[in-house]
Design a protein around this nucleic acid. Sequence first.
DNA 1: ACGTGATACAACCGTATGGTTGTATCAATG
DNA 2: CATTGATACAACCATACGGTTGTATCACGT
Lengths: 110, 110
Amino acid sequence: MATPNADHIFAALADATRRDIVLRALAGREGVAELAGHYPMSFAAVQKHVAVLERAGLITKERSGRRKVVLTNIEGLNLARSLLDQYETLWRGRVERMTHLIASSEETDR
Amino acid sequence: MATPNADHIFAALADATRRDIVLRALAGREGVAELAGHYPMSFAAVQKHVAVLERAGLITKERSGRRKVVLTNIEGLNLARSLLDQYETLWRGRVERMTHLIASSEETDR
DNA sequence: ACGTGATACAACCGTATGGTTGTATCAATG
DNA sequence: CATTGATACAACCATACGGTTGTATCACGT
């Protein structure tokens, strides 16, 4: 699965085509060729996008006859989510701290 | 605030230095120079990172005397989070559908 | 075993990105 | 108003990225 770190994950998500592939691969029904059919670019270009997503750990490929079905790996997405959640949590902490500051200054003000 | 779309947001988050800036800017206490002090690169380089984050709508700058304090914009982060949440929701839907399929096939199997 | 469908990979091209140094703007202070 | 501190911006360089075409691999059907 290569080295799926935050850098790779966010970089992989920073492209509309790749985000759409992730979306379609949630269903886990299409091979690379079918996916390529949806986009106005060459088969090789789509294959490269798939490779980027694979390197980031956001998808896997599973052989099915002569095709390779592309599947979204929810674990990878969850890693990104948890990072953003962390920011959110810290943000809330900040807001609370600010609220406390305001509250205490209001106390001393009166 | 330029054009903060998903491409820009994820691209901005795909760099460890920039993610760290976002983290520090949650506190909203440091100017560009203070931020630059934390990283092993030139002031100008950090300034560019800040510009990328600003273009993505992830931070704003607020003048405070001769400094400009860097502040994280939680709205931008939430946009990214909501997108990932959407994937998560679709994933759950997929799993439920699979469960139904299994259930119905079990019915027809017996 | 051969031909074909599906995927992979390499070489190449233009542009974007991340870093550098140097110069310019802008705001507070003496 | 001249100086200094803090930020901004331009020019430049090396490397990465997104796309192309062409060739190679690999698995199935006949």
